[in-house]
């Protein structure tokens, strides 16, 4: 049996036929070295199962070391597994995942598939979009999560929506267990833990306006 149940597949099939428009490209970067990447195989497998459901979803699997040029273009820095989404015409909105998006986090992958298939327009309030426009320097949002945290997927989605709204912003989910050193560097001991431009901005789950405010304020100082 696959990682997704028959019901899951049926459910996604219905959802994608109703909600998808154009093709979506999912790029996944892996390493065959299991000591370096415990969850690479399973990440690729589950994405394969999803892409098998609708032919508009195109999966491209790269080796983070061997396919150096691609990894470099998308700034993967050897962190595997890494996932990113592109629109049909190859637009990279800066949406990233480092580590496996399992548990509730996986539903954000489904949301991103639908979003990128419809042009990756940010789903945020006009007030938030106005604030996000002010971000005029390259900004990286990292949302550290654990797969068992129910408060994390919303934070990941909000960060991803911010990336879609402004080309200066990239936003990544980081699965803390898989990157202990990276997590330690930022003192992560509770999730969601949000790092903006290499500094901890805030810890905890917030509604949209507060999340956006916190990030924007952190960037603008």
């Amino acid at each position: 049996m696959g990682l997704l149940s028959e019901q899951d597949v049926q459910y996604l099939n219905d959802l994608f036929s109703k909600e998808m428009r154009d093709d979506v490209r999912i790029l996944v970067f892996k390493s065959d070295d299991t000591s370096r990447c415990e969850y690479c195989d399973i990440t690729v497998s589950v994405l394969k199962e999803v892409t098998d459901i609708d032919e508009r979803i195109k999966l491209e699997v790269y080796d983070a070391d061997d396919d150096e040029a691609v990894a470099k273009r998308y700034d993967i820095k050897g962190r595997v597994p890494a996932i990113l989404f592109l629109t049909a015409d190859g637009q990279d909105k800066g949406v990233r995942y480092f580590g496996i998006p399992s548990g509730h986090e996986f539903s954000t992958v489904i949301q991103n598939i639908i979003s990128f298939s419809n042009g990756a327009n940010p789903s945020l309030s006009p007030a938030s979009l106005e604030k996000i426009k002010q971000v005029d320097i390259p900004t990286e949002i990292l949302v550290f999560v654990t797969p068992t945290c129910p408060y994390c997927p919303r934070a990941v989605l909000l960060a991803h929506e911010m990336a879609k709204a402004n080309d200066n912003i990239t936003a990544a989910m980081v699965e803390a267990n898989e990157f202990p050193e990276w997590s330690m560097e930022h003192g992560v001991s509770a999730v969601p833990h949000i790092v903006v431009n290499e500094e901890t901005a805030f810890i905890g789950a917030y509604p949209e306006d507060m999340f956006v405010d916190h990030v924007v304020q952190h960037v603008l100082g």
């Binding site: 068992t148 408060y151 994390c152 810890i203």
Partner: peptide
């Protein structure tokens, strides 16, 4: 210390300890 050792969700943050 909320988020720096104080937690309200064991399933979320237990792994860090």
């Amino acid at each position: 210390f909320s988020g720096k050792g104080v937690s309200y969700c064991a399933t979320c943050d237990g792994h860090f300890f």
